[in-house]
């Protein structure tokens, strides 16, 4: 099994292996066969196969893509989306949390504040970034940067990619709940536009802690949920093996959440997922961000805050029998 491909992509992996094989044989092969033509034929087949597999992904499969080890992380996008970026560190009271990165950046010439959750690629980096699970100081750094953005009138762009806020002893001691709650509170009335984009895993309160704003976008194969499918399955089904069912029931994909009116926009990914083509994935994100920010140009700040309040308090479905 090719580790670069997920289980449900194995038919594609086999085709790709054949293409590789043909390429390797190259001109040494039987001159009777036109290698170039054969490769092209297989490539077309591979592409249409990918298209058909990706057209009907189950939520559980989307979750696998969202967590793909090669999926671009916030810093991969930062490099490609912005012309300039200066990373700032620390919450000014305890520490710097590498699971959240942020700082002023320039998007299409315009100064913005960028804040993103950051996972690590190799083992050492994964540990340093704590698998993208922020501690209270991470949320407090994010809040410090958001206040700075408000002061200097910079729109805030956040990138969500976390399994959740870190469940650890120190995190509890330093007030994980309070740190997240404080961000929700503050973000609800910051006087600059806030655009949140889920680029990978939107894990519960840990994601929401930098996710409140005027517009919520999701990359095509990202997920957003109140609890991980595994966590949900182990609690409600009493078996973590039922995570596919849990993913289905909760509706964690961009498509489903847009249907439910919880997400404003889905940003398309390159065929086969963002990890197949970082540059094009970043371009899609950049275009969507430029457009989203543009919508707030010349707007009145009081109206912005009032609209955000209406938006945030409109979430929820219930019956009112008076």
């Amino acid at each position: 099994m090719n580790p670069n491909f997920l289980e449900f992509e194995q038919p594609i992996a086999e085709l790709e292996a054949q293409i590789e094989e043909l390429r390797r044989l190259g001109s040494d092969a039987n001159p009777e066969i036109n290698i170039g033509e054969e490769i092209q034929r297989l490539q077309q087949k591979s592409e249409s196969l990918t298209r058909s597999i990706f057209a009907k992904l189950r939520p559980q499969q989307v979750a696998q893509l969202a967590r793909h080890p090669m999926r671009p992380y916030s810093l991969d996008y930062l490099d490609r989306v912005f012309e300039e970026f200066t990373e700032l560190h620390g919450d000014r009271s305890y520490a710097d949390d590498p699971a959240i990165v942020g700082g002023p950046a320039r998007l299409d010439g315009r100064p913005v504040m960028v804040i993103g959750q950051q996972k690590g690629r190799d083992t050492k980096e994964k540990l340093r970034r704590n698998f993208g699970m922020a501690r209270p100081e991470g949320y407090r750094k994010a809040l410090r940067l958001m206040r700075m953005a408000e002061k200097f009138n910079m729109p805030i762009l956040t990138f969500i990619d976390t399994p959740g806020a870190y469940p650890g002893v120190g995190a509890e001691e330093r007030g994980q709940s309070e740190a997240i709650a404080r961000n929700l509170f503050a973000m609800s009335d910051l006087r600059v536009p806030i655009i949140a984009t889920v680029v990978g895993e939107g894990g519960s309160g840990g994601a929401l802690g930098i996710g409140v704003g005027d517009r919520l976008m999701m990359l095509e194969y990202s997920t957003y949920s109140v609890i991980s499918p595994e966590g949900c399955a182990s609690i409600l089904w009493k078996s973590s093996e039922k995570s596919a069912e849990a993913a289905e029931a909760m509706g964690i994909t961009a498509l489903r959440l847009k249907e439910l009116g919880l997400v404003d926009e889905i940003i398309g990914e390159p065929l086969g997922g963002a990890h197949r083509d970082y540059d094009n994935a970043a371009k899609g994100l950049r275009d969507a961000l430029i457009q989203a920010i543009g919508a707030f140009d010349g707007g009145d700040t009081d109206a912005l805050v009032e609209q955000r309040y209406q938006r945030l308090t409109s979430y929820g479905r219930y019956r009112d029998t008076g």
Binding site: A181, L184, F185, A186, M187, S188, D189, S204, G205, L208, G211, V212, Y224, S225, V226, I227, C232, I235, L236, A249, M250, G251, I252, L257, L260, L262, R308, Y309, L312, T313, Y315, G316, R317
Partner: peptide, 26 residues
């Protein structure tokens, strides 16, 4: 905590209630 059976609707009650409290504070 949040009610899993209402999935992301439940998560968004966190920001909903926090926004209301920010207004109360003002």
């Amino acid at each position: 905590g949040a009610r899993m059976q209402e999935a992301l609707f439940s998560l968004f009650q966190m920001s909903k209630t926090s926004a209301a409290l920010a207004r109360l504070s003002r």
